[in-house]
Amino acid sequence: MDDSLQNNKNNRRKFLRISLLTGLSAVAAKTVFADIPVDPENEPGEMVTLLSPDGQLVKVPKEKINYMEKYISPEASHQGIPHRKFVMVIDLAKCKNARKCVEHCQKAHHLPPQQEFMKVYLMQESEEAAPYWMPKPCFHCDKPLCVSVCPVGATYKRSDGIVLIDNERCIGCKFCMTGCPYSARQFNWADSPYLHVDQPYSPETSVPGKEGTVSKCDFCPDMIRDGKMPHCVTACPMGVIYFGDQLEDIVTNGDETIRFSELITSRSGYRHLEDLGTKPSVYYLPPVNRQFPVERGFDQPDEINQRYKDVPFVKKMHKN
C-alpha cells in the first residue's frame, strides 16, 4: 500500500517509478504484440503479463531494478541495517502448504525447482500427535553455530540479526551445513543456468549463486532496505508469516500489524528446538484453532506430496 509508506520512501519509490516509466516506454515499443513463449531456463529477466492501454495482452520484463544504485557490496553487507533486529513469526494455525512462499522465494533468488531456501515440512511429533505444516526458512540464530564453525568468515552474523553468506569468500567446505541443526543450508553442487544471472553479486540478494559454495535463506535485506518485506511474507495468501523489527516490537504479515511481544505471549509463541540453545530469530505460533484441515496441504503435485510419505499421518491415510 503506497499510502502506508513513509514520505521518504514514497519519494524514492516515485523516483523509481519515473525512471521505470521512461525505461519502460522504450521496452514496450519493442515488446508490444510480442507474446513470445519464454524459455524459463534462458529467461533474460522475469516477465509479467500485462494489458496494454489498447487491450493487448503483452509480456514485458518485470521492473528492472537499478542494481548499481542500491548495490551492497560483500564488504558493506557485513554491516547490519542500523538499530534493527529482524524477527519472523510463523503462524502454524494458518498454513495450508500453499507453497506460495517457496515459489516466490525461488523466483526471487533464481533457484532451480528442487532447491528451496524456504521449505515446507509436514511435522508430526509422534504418531498420536496432530500433523501440521511447518514452513522453515533459515532461523538466523543469535548463537549461529554455522557462523562459529566457518573457517574463513564467509558467513557472518550482522548487528540486525541477519546471518548472511558471502559466496565470494566461501571455500565450500560445507562445515556450516553440518553445523546447522535445521538443515537450512544448501550447496551449489553443479553449475547451472540458474547461477548465471546478469546482476552484480551481493550477499544481501544471494544472487547470482556460485558453484561450489553454500547458500541459504537471507531474510531479503535488499527488500528490507527498500522498505519492503521478504518475498515469502508478501507471497503468502494466508498471512501465515509475520516479519518485523523486534526492537520496535512491531511485526506485520502485510494485512495485519501487531506488536511482536503481544503476538508471542498471547499465542504462546515458541522457537523450534529451543533446547539446542541456538536462539533462532524465527518464532512459531502453535497450530491450534486451525483455519484449515491439514489435508488441504495435499492439494499439490504428486512430486510434492510424495515427500511426506514417511510421516505417520500420511502412512495411515494411505492405509485407509
Binding site: V149, C150, V152, I171, G172, T213
Partner: peptide, 26 residues
C-alpha cells in the same frame, strides 16, 4: 582428502588469508 571435500579449491589460500580462530577447521 579434506581438499576433495572443498567446493572451491581455487580459494584454498583463504584459509590462511582470513583465518577464524573459532573454527575447528582452522
Amino acid at each position: 582428502y579434506i581438499l576433495l571435500c572443498i567446493g572451491r579449491l581455487d580459494r584454498l589460500p583463504f584459509l590462511f588469508m582470513y583465518p577464524r580462530i573459532q573454527s575447528p577447521i582452522t
